[in-house]
Simulated assay, not measured.
Amino acid sequence: MTRFDAADPETRRALYADAIAAHRERESQFLTIEVDESSLEGNPAVAEHGIPWLQFADDTINLDCTNDELERLKSLLSDFPAFSIDELTRPENADGINVRLRATTDPERIAQFLDAAIQTVYVLPEATKVWAVEV
């Protein structure tokens, strides 16, 4: 894998698919995708809850979200039938919800979902820059 960031839908999806392939080839513990902080300027909801991230490992996607973001995630799942909520955790000592999704599909479809989640769940613009911070 030679690039670790992308800022438009097509290159982000390619980045996600390449990162998933690298993660599997390296047999690493997990893959972490993080939104670039510069993409969050002017978004008070994200500023309040921190930088959005998504993790992938063993056909599972892990992310944190608020109640509103969870509702948007549930709505997004109707477009991705190969994905389902596996577990919801609401820690007492933290705001928000940790969500584990089961993703039983190919890396390209997972990449499409990750990109849709960044834009839909976190309400971020199409030009959002992301990083593969751990592969």
Rank of each mutant, 00 (worst) to 15 (best):
K74D: 01
R90L: 08
D59R: 15
V99Q: 00
S78C: 06
T60R: 04
G50L: 00
A116M: 11
I85K: 07
Y122V: 08
E27N: 15
I61P: 02
Y122D: 07
K74F: 00
F113R: 10
T89L: 10
V135F: 06
E10I: 12
L63F: 11
N67S: 13
R3N: 15
S39I: 00
T66H: 05
F4S: 12
D5A: 12
E27Y: 04
L101W: 00
A47G: 15
P81W: 02
L70R: 10
F30V: 04
D36L: 00
I51Q: 02
A47S: 14
I61L: 10
A7H: 11
E48L: 11
R3D: 13
E10Y: 06
E108Y: 07
N93W: 13
F113A: 13
S75M: 11
R100A: 03
P44W: 04
A57H: 14
L73P: 03
R12M: 00
F56T: 14
G96Q: 00
A22Q: 15
E27F: 10
A57G: 11
L40T: 04
D106Y: 14
Y16K: 06
T11N: 14
L77S: 11
S28Y: 15
E134A: 14
K74L: 08
D86R: 15
R109D: 05
I118S: 07
L15D: 05
A111F: 01
A21M: 04
G96P: 04
S28G: 06
L88A: 10
S39Y: 06
G50S: 03
L101Q: 00
T11S: 15
E10F: 09
A14S: 07
Q29M: 11
D106L: 06
L114C: 07
E41W: 13
E134R: 15
I20C: 13
L54N: 13
R109A: 14
E71K: 13
T104G: 12
E87T: 00
A7G: 03
F83L: 01
P44A: 02
G96H: 04
D64H: 12
D59G: 10
N62D: 13
P107T: 02
T128K: 06
L70D: 00
V46R: 08
A45Y: 07
A19Y: 07
S84I: 11
Y122A: 08
R102E: 14
P52F: 02
Y122Q: 05
L40I: 15
L88H: 03
E71D: 15
D115W: 11
L40F: 03
D86T: 06
A127V: 09
S38C: 02
S28P: 02
D86C: 10
V130T: 10
P107C: 14
D8Q: 10
L76K: 06
Q112A: 15
K74M: 05
S84Q: 05
N98D: 08
D58L: 01
D79I: 01
D59V: 07
D59I: 07
N93T: 09
Q119E: 06
T128L: 12
I20V: 09
S75V: 14
T66K: 10
A127C: 12
A14D: 05
V135I: 11
E134D: 11
Q112P: 05
Y122T: 03
E108G: 13
P107K: 12
R3S: 12
R26G: 04
H49M: 08
E48I: 05
H49S: 05
A117W: 05
E126Y: 10
C65I: 02
T32V: 02
K129A: 12
L70G: 00
R90E: 08
E34R: 13
I118P: 04
